[in-house]
């Protein structure tokens, strides 16, 4: 195998500059995913059936179609959907966020159900209102249990963000592909992009372990 990194060496900084874009998409999408995911999960365990139906329908749509399709629908459909053409970055974090929320809501729902029913009763017996009970008693315990699954979702999100290439957002993937086109060498820059993604995922994994360790204090 003859690898020639020298030709693409001058372009490596250009590829590295894609990292902030990838991180921004992932970070905003993760926030949307968590917040909307919590709301959806609470709707799913709600006693009001219509709320449950809406949340279940939402999840089925976003899990039942390809992410790249959702991305393109939102990006190319935005003039018809919202009346304005949104830019590629907005389309990226929106579609990833909405998609993530569907998966995260299922994870959180499972986490909430796994919390001992007695916790809820203990809080109710003390006169604690539903919203406080959820926020300070049930969800913290649920999150502790689902942290590995949640971390997994963020890792997937980081890697899957590469498909924003299809709508022309200059992330790591897109830039390595451009470098490939300019130098007629695709293998090396894309291999380099792979290394960047790998390192980012490793960092996320370590962060996950640290947070997990912190949450284990009460064990």
């Amino acid at each position: 195998m003859n690898l020639d990194f020298e030709r693409i060496m001058p372009s490596l900084p250009y590829i590295l500059e894609g990292i902030p874009m990838t991180l921004k998409v992932v970070a905003v999408a993760a926030v949307i995913g968590i917040v909307l995911g919590i709301v959806l999960s609470l709707m799913k365990i709600s006693r009001m059936k219509p709320l449950k139906w809406i949340a279940d329908f939402y999840t089925s749509i976003f899990r039942g179609t390809p992410l790249v399709l959702q991305l393109m629908l939102i990006y190319f459909g935005s003039p018809q959907l919202f009346g304005v053409q949104i830019d590629a970055f907005e389309a990226a974090f929106l579609s990833f966020g909405l998609n993530s929320a569907a998966y995260i809501s299922e994870v959180i729902r499972g986490g909430i159900n796994a919390v001992d029913k007695g916790q809820r009763e203990a809080a109710l017996a003390l006169g604690v209102p539903y919203s406080s009970m959820m926020l300070s008693i049930i969800l913290p315990q649920a999150f502790k249990n689902i942290l590995p699954a949640l971390m997994n979702e963020f890792i997937t999100l980081t890697k899957e963000s590469a498909i924003v290439t299809t709508i022309g957002l200059a992330d790591i993937m897109r830039r390595s592909y451009i470098v490939g086109g300019e130098t007629y060498k695709f293998f090396e820059p894309i291999l380099f992009a792979g290394l960047i993604y790998y390192v980012m995922v490793m960092i996320l994994t370590v962060i996950g372990k640290l947070v997990e360790g912190r949450m284990k204090r009460s064990d």
């Binding site: 007695g118 916790q119 009763e121 203990a122 017996a125 913290p140 315990q141 949450m215 009460s218």
Partner: peptide, 11 residues
């Protein structure tokens, strides 16, 4: 109320 299985908040 005091429960058979305590139900203290573990976190």
């Amino acid at each position: 109320m005091v429960f058979q299985h305590f139900h203290l908040f573990p976190h």
